[in-house]
Computed example of a mutant assay.
Amino acid sequence: MSPVISPSTPADRSSPAYLPRPVHNSDHAAVRPLRIAQIAPLAECCPPRLYGGTERIVSFLTEELVRQGHDVTLFASGDSRTNATLVPCTDMALRLNPAVRDPIPYHMIMLDQVRRRADDFDILHFHVDVLHAPLIHAFADRTVTTLHGRLDLPDLVPFYRAFPDIPLVSISDAQRRPMPPVNWVGTVPHGVPADLLPFVPAPAGDYLAFLGRISPEKRPDRAIAIAARAGLPLKIAAKVDKVDQAYWDEVIAPLVAAHANVTFIGEINDQQKPAFLGNARALLFPIDWPEPFGLVMIEAMACGTPVIAFCSGSVPEVIDDGVSGFIVHDMDAAVEAVGRAGHLDRAQVRETFMRRFTVDHMARAYVSIYRRLAASRCTEADRPLADSDAPLQVVA
């Protein structure tokens, strides 16, 4: 019987991640480099050319694990760039390939390659939501699945009831709330390289920034209204997915046209982000949904730019209210926060990022989980047969 691992208990919020303690043992297994497979979605390459939160995190994690000395294999699209061993599972990112109509067959091909090579790895880290669950029964105890999306969708409840033993990692504690009892093994906040987005102590522009997707749950309409009431320019750097095209055409595009203070830039790449975020007075994050994490918040913080965010989903776990930004509950508070954002110490905003949200923190958090699972397997194998039905409690 597989060990039952209790959900990790969140530590103090100042901790870079809510983690189990690292494993140490006499044969030095805790310091042996691990053979790790990272299995990425195929919608974008790693790292993405433009928008792509999950693939960006997979890329950051993969490169940092290689830097820390682990043997990493990345299953991803063929146009990915990595220092790991790349297993190209499509010629190019699916979103950028006009010939692709259905992404599922390509992911099935990739997962079959992963299954065939499963014995090559100490740990297989999946980032593809639910697709792999039926394929990993024989080696589920050597897997970790990070859930990157929202978990309050009704169709997910019967799925996770059917697969309760797969080791899962959340990217915030808020993300977990809608889930039935499952095998949580940790919460690991996202992290980005410390040198990717340089600190900007004195922004060159006095404008508000919105970065992300044009979609109803991201509420760019709120951002436009906040900027208008605050009397400041708003720059919107965002992509428009096909599913959100009508929302753009019917709601947001007319608002942009009606407000002279609003500039729509479109999608931007990693080279454009430092100037876009770093020169803003504040990032507006006016979401209206249970955001699992919100990568753009820590990207802004890395530049020293405070974040004005509506209190939903992971926001209270990411933003230190009054230090790295302001958490607001309504439009009046958001407009008022714009006036106060310029008085925050941008060096403290950056320091908060460095203390909690670098890729080094994220990678070490995952390695601790990988090793903890390996230690749990060893413990289970060494236990007497009479104890095989007793649950193993792992305490954070």
Rank of each mutant, 00 (worst) to 15 (best):
T9A: 12
P16F: 02
A17E: 02
L19E: 11
A29D: 11
R32Y: 02
I36C: 09
A37V: 09
A37H: 10
A40T: 04
P41I: 00
R49Q: 12
L50A: 12
G52C: 01
G53H: 02
G53E: 12
E55C: 11
R56W: 05
V58W: 07
T62G: 11
R67E: 12
G69C: 07
H70E: 09
T73M: 11
T73D: 00
A76R: 09
A76W: 03
D79N: 15
T82A: 07
N83D: 04
C89M: 07
T90H: 06
R95E: 14
I104A: 12
P105E: 04
H107I: 06
D112S: 10
R115N: 07
R115S: 10
R115Y: 03
R116P: 00
R117P: 05
A118H: 14
A118Y: 00
D119E: 13
D120E: 14
D120Q: 14
A133C: 05
P134T: 04
L135K: 11
A140T: 07
R142I: 04
T143L: 09
V144G: 03
T145E: 12
T145H: 09
T146G: 05
L147M: 14
L147W: 13
H148P: 04
G149Y: 01
R150C: 06
P154Q: 08
D155Q: 14
L156M: 14
F159Y: 14
Y160I: 01
Y160F: 15
F163V: 06
F163S: 00
P164H: 00
A174K: 03
Q175M: 05
P181E: 11
V182F: 11
N183F: 08
V185N: 00
G186I: 01
G191H: 06
V192E: 08
L196T: 11
F199Y: 15
A202M: 13
P203T: 01
G205I: 00
L208E: 03
S215N: 09
S215M: 11
E217R: 10
R219W: 06
P220S: 08
A223C: 09
A227S: 15
L234H: 02
I236H: 07
V240N: 02
K242A: 13
D244H: 15
Q245T: 06
Y247G: 00
W248F: 15
D249E: 12
V251Q: 07
A253H: 10
L255M: 15
A260W: 00
T263W: 02
F264R: 12
I265Y: 09
D270C: 10
Q272S: 12
K273D: 06
L283T: 05
W289Y: 15
P290D: 15
P290M: 10
P290C: 10
E291P: 04
M297L: 09
I298L: 07
I298R: 07
M301K: 06
A302Q: 08
C303E: 03
P306L: 02
F310C: 04
E317C: 03
E317M: 07
I319G: 02
G322N: 07
V323L: 13
I327V: 15
H329F: 01
M331S: 09
D332F: 01
A333Q: 15
A334F: 02
V335W: 06
V338A: 11
G339C: 02
D345H: 06
V349H: 05
F353W: 08
M354D: 13
R356D: 04
T358A: 10
D360E: 15
M362T: 05
R364A: 13
L373N: 01
A375E: 13
E380L: 13
L385C: 07
D389M: 11
Q393R: 09
V394G: 08
